[in-house]
């Protein structure tokens, strides 16, 4: 049984079908990307998976439990770090614990040991505005982690970072995922990022959005040093670009960043 399964998801807004009959799954420990042009309904799918909205059709299962329309089971992270400006970092990251009923003091005590492994030591009692973009993003990740769900949905979390910071945070994220046994579903429109990080890639196209194709990326994630310079990498990239270009044009579609 897969860790997370979504079957036949259809979501409409105001009579317009945004995504149609989507089937995806996520296995334990996997990092799977959802790649598609802007407007293909990736974010809508995430809203359904995280339980924020109820789909017109279809169901979401987490370890066999039906969680359709039930928020609080899967953690969610966006491009914006969305740290609350008035809370110190330690209170920001331990917010999921407080929301579940922990006292502020207990929550702080529980969060504190993770600061060093998330590269945030010394930042506990600072405010978000006093941190760099990369640090804020790591704090957002720690918050995601402390929500203790086994699945994280990441909606273009790194797209605001510069290339070098992005590279570092990729490496670090894969490392953390390994350590804390987290499985990730990852939205991106960056083809390179998707190939580099993923075990599998779902390519979403169309209007309404549908899963067009699924790609399994070989070699495995742990053997990808210098992968971006290999022929395999370019082959994957060519394949994806062809699929995306063949897809019917979307209204207001933007260029993919390649």
């Amino acid at each position: 049984m897969s860790l997370l399964t979504a079957s036949h998801i259809t979501k409409e807004y105001g009579g317009r079908t945004i995504i149609q009959d989507i089937d995806i799954c996520l296995e334990q420990g996997e990092l799977v990307s959802l790649l598609g042009l802007s407007g293909s309904g990736k974010t809508t799918l995430f809203h359904v998976l995280s339980g924020l909205v109820q789909p017109e059709k279809g169901q979401v299962f987490l370890e066999g439990e039906d969680i359709t329309g039930k928020p609080g089971k899967i953690s969610y992270m966006l491009q914006k770090d969305l740290l609350l400006p008035h809370k110190k970092i330690i209170d920001n990251v331990s917010l999921p614990l407080v929301l579940k009923g922990a006292r502020k003091k207990e929550a702080r005590r529980e969060a504190d040991p993770y600061f060093s492994s998330f590269g945030l030591n010394g930042a506990q009692y600072l405010y978000p505005s006093q941190l760099s973009g990369g640090m804020r993003q790591r704090a957002a990740l720690l918050r995601t982690y402390l929500s203790k769900s086994r699945v994280a949905l990441l909606d273009e979390p790194f797209s605001a970072l510069d290339t070098i910071t992005k590279g570092q945070i990729h490496e670090w994220y894969l490392d953390v995922m390994e350590k804390i046994d987290l499985s990730t579903l990852f939205i991106t429109h960056d083809i390179d990022e998707a190939i580099l990080l993923s075990d599998r890639i779902y390519i979403m196209t169309g209007n309404p959005g549908q899963i067009h194709q699924q790609l399994k990326i070989e070699p495995g994630r742990t053997h990808r040093k210098g992968f971006t310079l290999t022929d395999e990498f370019l082959n994957y990239k060519r394949q994806i670009i062809e699929i995306l270009q063949a897809a019917p044009a979307l209204p207001h579609a933007q260029e993919t960043s390649v």
Binding site: S75, Y76, L99
Partner: peptide, 17 residues
């Protein structure tokens, strides 16, 4: 930010929280 509210709802926060 509406995304902050979405994020908190995804964390299971109630309206009061």
């Amino acid at each position: 930010d509406p995304d902050t509210i979405r994020l908190m709802r995804a964390m299971g926060a109630s309206r009061v929280q």
